[in-house]
């Protein structure tokens, strides 16, 4: 909360510096995003992939792993979803939709597993590897789109079969008129539920938590640490891989290069703010969704990049204040022991 407010204040300085009224800008930002169903629909549409990449980073965090690779996993997963959609065009929807969802999950999971296996077998650091894999993934998807499945004069894949579409809510219900908010939001919510159930209600989740809190204890109690590392990484990649459904199956019906708009990296911020809690992730993702769509609504007053700046500042303040919180707790603890 503190970080959000402070960053809005810093943002206000930027806005004032270019001669606009910060209050007016923020008022417009919030009224246009939350004041009508179209705005809300846009926000939830932007939040959908962020929930999934946030979950991805969070589940890896829980296992003591730092997944910077959600961006690459998201791209590979999205391509897999699209590939199923434009290849098996004759399949009925009740087969094609689950298949496309599954492909997204498996694509992301396999991609993340490269880093997971390297970590488990060779001990090579997942942070650098996932960063490298992001760039390899982007180049690979670019190759597939431009060279293997080219559509002349575009940078996107062929269109997927209508049987693979995840329908928009405005078509289904009539509300959120005009916004691309679609059924993949429900998949994101289901993923949150799955993560909650898995981590807090199952033995596997208990093991992953133990691994993250104390690797030594996990080894000592005869857990298969290598298997847990690989599994956690695969799950993380799977969640991120589902993030492509929102754009591919729910919105444009093809994969376009650059569609991910850094959602993988913003997922890190989402997980940090939510402290890896799946319900917190939904809220944090919606907050970033407000910023992202809000940026477009104020573009006439202030360049929309003010939002990118705000996002960065939120993250920087967020990680910095942890230091002060820890320090004040330490002081209190010391004072307590001195008195007692």
């Amino acid at each position: 909360m503190i970080s959000v407010i402070t960053s809005l204040l810093i943002g206000a300085i930027f806005i004032a510096a270019i001669g606009q009224n910060p209050l007016e800008v923020y008022l417009q930002l919030f009224s246009q995003t939350l004041g009508n169903t179209y705005g809300i629909g846009q926000v939830l549409f932007k939040a959908t992939p962020l929930i999934l990449t946030g979950l991805s980073v969070a589940i890896a965090f829980k296992a003591g792993l730092f997944n910077i690779g959600a961006e690459g996993q998201l791209n590979i997963g999205a391509f897999a979803s699209a590939w199923v959609g434009f290849t098996f065009v004759t399949m009925p929807w009740y087969i094609l939709i689950p298949l496309s969802i599954l492909a997204g999950f498996i694509g992301g999971a396999l991609w993340a597993s490269i880093a997971g296996v390297l970590k488990a077998k060779f001990g090579s650091h997942e942070v650098i590897n996932t960063i490298m894999l992001n760039f390899i993934a982007l180049a690979l998807v670019s190759y597939l789109v431009n060279n293997i499945y080219p559509v002349p004069a575009t940078i996107h894949t062929p269109e997927i079969s209508p049987n693979a579409w995840l329908q928009r809510f405005d078509v289904l219900t009539g509300i959120f008129k005009g916004s691309p908010f679609n059924l993949s939001f429900l998949i994101a919510l289901a993923a949150c539920l799955l993560m909650y159930y898995l981590l807090w209600k199952t033995p596997l989740g208990y093991q992953i938590n133990t691994l993250g809190l104390n690797k030594g204890a996990a080894e000592y109690s005869k857990m298969n640490v290598k298997k847990l590392i690989m599994l956690s990484m695969a799950l993380a990649g799977g969640f991120a891989g589902l993030g492509g459904l929102n754009f591919v199956n729910g919105y444009k019906h093809y994969l376009e290069l650059g569609f991910s708009e850094n959602a993988g990296y913003i997922g890190i911020a989402v997980a940090l703010i939510a402290r890896n809690n799946p319900w917190g992730i939904i809220i944090a993702a919606i907050f970033f969704g407000i910023l992202e769509y809000g940026g477009l609504t104020i573009n006439t007053l202030v360049p929309k990049e003010i939002i990118t700046i705000l996002q960065a500042i939120v993250i920087l303040i967020m990680i910095s204040i942890n230091h002060f919180i820890a320090q004040s707790r330490y002081k209190k603890f010391n004072a307590g022991t001195a008195n007692g």
């Binding site: 850094n262 003010i306 230091h323």
Partner: peptide, 27 residues
């Protein structure tokens, strides 16, 4: 000084640089 995570700080600063250069480019 604040002992925060170096990777996250670096990524956030990259996002920051991306935003602020474009912001002032427009202005």
């Amino acid at each position: 000084t604040f002992k925060a995570n170096q990777i996250v700080s670096g990524i956030a600063l990259n996002i920051f640089a991306l935003g602020i250069t474009k912001f002032f480019c427009k202005i």
